[in-house]
Design a protein around this nucleic acid. Structure first.
Lengths: 206, 206
DNA sequence: ACAGCCATGTAAGTCGTTACATGATTGC
DNA sequence: GCAATCATGTAACGACTTACATGGCTGT
């Protein structure tokens, strides 16, 4: 139900149609939860059926309609419930780490490619998360400004602080990932030279 | 396809039936990738259909049969391909972090519950990952011993090193999560007292 | 007129979750 | 005889992915 709550959270800033929601999503929530528009549209329909959002349809040309969603009281209640109710942390499904634990099935070069890609990936995300945290801290995105200006938003310092702490936390995690990958690369060099040394010794003994 | 590769990796140690595989899974791969037996049995059937594993059926009572799976050459090829081929890192779906970014929809106490649960969760996992890494480093699990004794296992030091580095990495990540949660708890105290101070000031001014 | 963005979807397939279901063997 | 554990599944549902599909509006 994460997508649902993410969309509700965005709609507390202001009413939006699916397209705008998808765009705003990509520049905010997507830093923790990715979703393509093909998932957003049907989810909004389901949320409408569950009365979490209300829709205003606007004609567009002869056939098309633009659907503007706004959060309902039921929707706000669901957001509150979502945070107030303790939620078990999901079971682990770390495909990346799984590959990392079984690199022995490939060559040393494949292992190097793995760690290099890992390092590059998290170097990128470290920057992105850090920038995003700074932007929120500075009130420097349209979304956060709209959100803080919206009625019934609680203490602005609190709203900002939770997000900043989350994204700085992610940046710190990413930093550790980068360090881990670099150590991995050094480790592979050691493993390979040691394996070669043993192979050479074995050849002499034979 | 992670489950598939995890099962193949386990079968390089020795042939096993679904039940044993599920048990061994829980004490090894499950530290990075969770799967219940209800997923393992059908997956093994599919892997058989794809010739990644071969089966020996053994009668058991009048009706039951025990199915012992072993990895085929095709299966070993698939493991190699899995590691040799660069794989894109999955899109982010971090439900826990999403909740963390939107704690403002609940009370300060709900936020405290969130961070407390987060801290406890990762304290547990930090210990588990660290212990698991140590056990592998010491060759102290049945699986790793069987694996190292199995034919066609490569350099034992390499096999062990990849896993130890992975699990120590996870332990380090978990440690950071714990620190992050503790900082979160301190942050909430600050936010709440500051919000109360502002509320009191507002009351005076009115 | 054409490109680029606005706008909304559907469809097929894969993977994972939770709950249900059944029977055999072993040790006490 | 009974409990624990061995052993193997099915079913319904929910969530996510990738690809396909269609048409409107806007500026040059």
């Amino acid at each position: 139900m994460s997508l649902r709550h993410a969309l509700l959270a965005l709609l507390t800033a202001k009413p939006m149609n699916g397209y705008d929601l998808a765009k705003v999503f990509d520049r905010s929530v997507a830093y923790v939860w990715h979703a393509p528009h093909s998932q957003i549209y049907p989810e909004l329909r389901r949320m409408e059926a569950d009365h979490l959002v209300a829709v205003e349809s606007i004609r567009r040309g002869t056939k098309g309609t633009k659907r503007i969603y706004s959060i309902t009281e039921t929707g706000r209640g669901e957001l509150r419930r979502w945070i107030e109710t303790p939620a078990p942390i999901d079971m682990l499904h770390d495909a990346e780490r799984l590959r990392g634990a079984y690199l022995e099935f490939g060559s040393y070069d494949a292992a190097r490619r793995y760690y290099t890609a890992h390092r590059d990936h998290y170097e990128l995300w470290e920057r992105q998360w850090a920038v995003h945290a700074d932007q929120i801290a500075a009130g420097d995105t349209t979304l956060i400004r709209t959100r803080l200006a919206a009625p019934r938003t609680g203490d602005p310092a609190t709203v900002v602080a939770y997000k900043v702490h989350t994204y700085r936390g992610l940046a710190a995690q990413a930093h550790l990932e980068v360090e881990w990958a670099k150590q991995g690369l050094a480790m592979i060099d050691d493993l390979e030279t040691q394996a070669q040394a043993r192979a050479a010794e074995g050849a002499l003994t034979e």
